[in-house]
Design a binder for these strands. Sequence first.
DNA 1: CCTACATCCTCTAGCGACTAGAGGTGCAAG
DNA 2: CTTGCACCTCTAGTCGCTAGAGGATGTAGG
Lengths: 140, 140
Amino acid sequence: MKKITIGEASRQSGVKVPTIRYYEGIGLLSAPSRSEGNQRSYEPADISRLVFIRHARELGFEVDAIRTLLILQDDPNQSCASADAIAKARLIDVEQRIRSLMALKVELEAMVAGCGHGRVDQCRVIEVLADHGQCAHSHH
Amino acid sequence: MKKITIGEASRQSGVKVPTIRYYEGIGLLSAPSRSEGNQRSYEPADISRLVFIRHARELGFEVDAIRTLLILQDDPNQSCASADAIAKARLIDVEQRIRSLMALKVELEAMVAGCGHGRVDQCRVIEVLADHGQCAHSHH
DNA sequence: CCTACATCCTCTAGCGACTAGAGGTGCAAG
DNA sequence: CTTGCACCTCTAGTCGCTAGAGGATGTAGG
């Protein structure tokens, strides 16, 4: 089988070249074999792993969580309770974030709507920032 | 008037002590006067400024944006168009974030719901991560 | 075979917005 | 006077990359 260069691996996985090297450095990806000229040479399994990592990162999983998920993936006989727990924790986090962003959106909308486009001393944007008590939702 | 120590300023503003010093270092907060023993001594106006900064940070404004907002606040005769633009940009950003988090939530829910709590090789959490094509929303 | 050029290599430093720690000084109460 | 907390400066670490320097390798055309 033909050797996959790091550039090719990058194209196939969607992970940037320096990021692949970075992942190797932090131990997310095991070091591949090298060509005669010391260039990294990947195999299809490495590409799958990179796709897995990229996807998990896109879903907002932290590198440490991904490390655990990769260990689980490598040992299919294990119970998936850990994977389930990680995903659930992430879901709770995402829900929390959505809630606070929604509150924030309401507040920003009020700020923007209240701005009379006049001078700063009549501007609600500045005013609301200066005085937390004026927040639509002051519980943050 | 009595002098406000950095600890007291922290308590009143809700900004941590090292963060106050950090803000001074990056020029968000001007250096306060010092006591005989070289300790920072704040005035009520500084507390307001810190509250302003904290609130803006909680709303997700970047330090650079806050710098601009503080300049505007200091000069109430200016047009508030800049403040308005900054807030609007932030609103668009927040809306974008909410949208992607919602898509993410759907996907995580599917992952968690599909987990049969059995072994890893039947676990949808791992499976979905490994194969992007199985995403509920594959457009990320 | 030579040259040009893309791609690869390692290494270090930088980003944003803090946070942690070392090692030392100031100050107020008992 | 001593205890002990709060303050001081400075450096380095966090996270997940990204950028750049300076050099080696691989490949395609002439």
